[in-house]
């Protein structure tokens, strides 16, 4: 009996030793996957310049928000802004700092057809399963010059919870009342029809596999993989193809001071666009944070919204328009430690 007890105690001790914690001294961030290539480029450049190491994990927007709320990271990143309710629940004030702009392209596989126009209502009806073939009068009407085939439409959507889905369905809710009532807006949805595929690469795979398919894909992925995507009608009635200029143009609306705004269904530019944000606590004195950590974080955010923007274009990201950078400056300057503003 006795030796067994010793064994047991020793083993518990060893178990306990195995679960030891590690201490990190670098800046930690986690969240959205969409801006990951941009952030990782920016952060490695920042590391070379200042010798400050920033570790960003692209675990998804929802994960980024959760990690910030659990205070396990210095900053979170998200493609969809937190709702008023979510902000209220967090008790401590959270700031949304815009970092870049993204867009969702509507890609399709119709052999021989390289130019296609679509309206919001038509896209909604396709995703509701009401338009079933490509030569449907609703599609034919806006593409009078193209001879559309009688092929069945294979609808593809994201199966993983995604900011891309959130922007896409935010747009559909604005342009289609039936969509708003039946499906709604979110990162994961109860899709009435279609194949669910994981990630942009999964949707691209379905598009490649099945002629007659349609799917929504994050624009940079679509561009880099040379996919065919449609021109979408904006609120002013123009058919617009997504590009750096048209996406930036979509943000030319009245932006609130906290920058939490949806810019889909815009009058100007490409109508399925959106911001991506980094989220931080306004008061940096929480947990065991030191003032120097708050200083480092604030400097990083300032650099990312200013000099860091230079890395956008080469990676096909849209840099923030000047008006938005001005809003971001005010937000970053409001970050405080013990009631004292961190950025001088």
């Amino acid at each position: 009996m006795k030796p067994w007890r010793t064994h047991f105690l020793t083993s518990l001790l060893i178990t306990g030793l195995c679960i030891s914690s590690t201490h990190a001294t670098e800046i930690l961030g986690a969240g959205a996957t969409f801006p990951y290539p941009l952030y990782s480029k920016m952060l490695s450049a920042y590391n070379m310049k200042t010798n400050i190491k920033v570790n960003y994990q692209s675990i998804g927007s929802g994960g980024g928000i959760r990690q910030l709320l659990n205070k396990t990271v210095d900053f979170g990143a998200t493609d969809g802004f937190m709702s008023d309710q979510e902000l209220k629940n967090s008790r401590e004030a959270i700031l949304h700092i815009p970092m870049s702009l993204g867009a969702v392209s509507i890609a399709y596989n119709l052999p021989g057809i390289t130019k296609l126009k679509l309206t919001g209502a038509v896209i909604a009806n396709i995703y509701l399963g009401q338009i079933k073939t490509w030569n449907d009068p609703q599609i034919q009407k806006i593409n009078p010059r193209i001879k559309l085939p009688a092929t069945q439409i294979v609808v593809a959507h994201r199966s993983d919870g995604s900011g891309t889905s959130a922007i896409f369905t935010d747009y559909l809710c604005k342009v289609s009342l039936p969509w708003q009532q039946k499906v709604g807006q979110g990162t994961s949805l109860n899709w009435p029809t279609g194949i669910g595929a994981k990630g942009n690469e999964g949707v691209a795979g379905i598009l490649k596999l099945a002629p007659g398919s349609i799917g929504y894909i994050e624009i940079i992925y679509a561009k880099q993989n040379k996919m065919t995507y449609a021109e979408i009608q904006n609120k002013a009635g123009q058919f617009v193809s997504p590009s750096l200029e048209t996406i930036a143009a979509a943000s030319d609306i009245k932006i609130p001071a906290d920058t939490r705004v949806s810019i889909t269904d815009s009058k100007k530019g490409y109508p399925i666009s959106g911001f991506t944000w980094i989220i931080v606590y306004k008061n940096q004195n929480y947990g065991n944070r030191k003032e120097s950590q708050a200083q480092d974080l604030t400097n990083l955010l300032w650099w990312m919204t200013h000099d860091g923007q230079a890395y956008s274009a080469a990676l096909d990201y849209v840099s923030l328009p000047k008006s938005v950078v001005a809003k971001a400056e005010i937000l970053i300057k409001s970050i405080s430690y013990n009631g004292v503003k961190v950025k001088k």
């Binding site: 998804g60 929802g62 994960g63 199966s159 993983d160 919870g161």
Partner: peptide
């Protein structure tokens, strides 16, 4: 038919769930 499994729902939706 198309379908879904328990493991794949978890893999798909957990990271973005709120």
């Amino acid at each position: 038919s198309l379908g879904n499994t328990m493991a794949s729902v978890l893999a798909n939706e957990f990271s973005e769930a709120n």
